[in-house]
Amino acid sequence: MDTAILSLLQTLAFPGFLFLAVSSFFYEWLDRKIYAWMQFRAGPLSAGPMGILQPLADFIKLMGKEDITPAYVDRRIFGAVPVLMVAITLTFWAVIPVTGAAGLVSFRGDVIFAVVAMTFFCILVFLGGFSSANRFSLLGAERATLQLLGFEIPLMLSVTGVCIHTGGLSMAEIVSWQAENGWSVLGPQAIGFFIFLIAAQAELERIPFDIPEAEQEIVAGWLTEYSGRKLALIRLAKDMELVFVSGLAVALFLGGPVGPSPSGMEWIAYTAYFLLKVAIIVSILAIIRGLFARARIDQMVSFGIRYLVPLSLAQVAATVLWRLF
């Protein structure tokens, strides 16, 4: 009975849903601040000290706005997409290690489980755009699926490289291996890390790959018809996905949350390491966001297939060779 209540508490509060939601607000703030710093702007300023409550304020504001559903949409899919996005991110979050080498849930093959989350997200983006009876949404949905072609394979291959390198197919094994043998980013996985970050930027639909929601071309892309509570949930899901992908990168490449800590206080120290490392990844992603113009969809897919795929194949080959000797 005690373990059941403990598990419930862990799932709902820490390191589960509530932790994910709060940290997603924090990391959205960090992302916006770094992006603004690069542009000589201030970023969020007035909501809370240094504007740290701004993402929460945006969420609350959107929840209170009118939720308009256009007449010709496919109601069930249109309404289900935001809820499913949040639900899927929350579900897949369970495998990310936060307080130790293993996440809330750990089983052999949970790395693949985590990567599948990203594909699911893209499918939901497509459904969301397609079910809104709007030309701009249709274009955005079409671009999201095309973009999937570009980054999916390099993403999988970079994860494969890590699995070969550390010899494990579950997060717990990967993190423990790195705790003993050093972070996997030092070594042939440096290239893999770089590829993973680029593919993550494409999956999260951020500049230079925010093509499915390119504001200047197709208004808001697949998000165009969403407003009010649905939009609030979508934005929350996007922020949570940022933390999810960063957490995945931390676990796979930066050694996960483990590090030196006083005994007995492991879960606090490990969570602190996790937050710090995720902040590093979010900062890198925010810096990439500020440095480039938006790619065109045909350029993005050709970049993915022409450069990223061979590079990631080479990286896997290098890892195999490294492992053999």
Binding site: M38, Q39, F40, R41, I207, A214, Q216, L291, A293, R294
Partner: peptide, 15 residues
């Protein structure tokens, strides 16, 4: 610059 999605360049030029 803003039309091609390059907001950083846009902000620098307007500064």
């Amino acid at each position: 610059a803003h039309e091609i999605g390059f907001d950083t360049f846009f902000m620098h030029v307007w500064l």
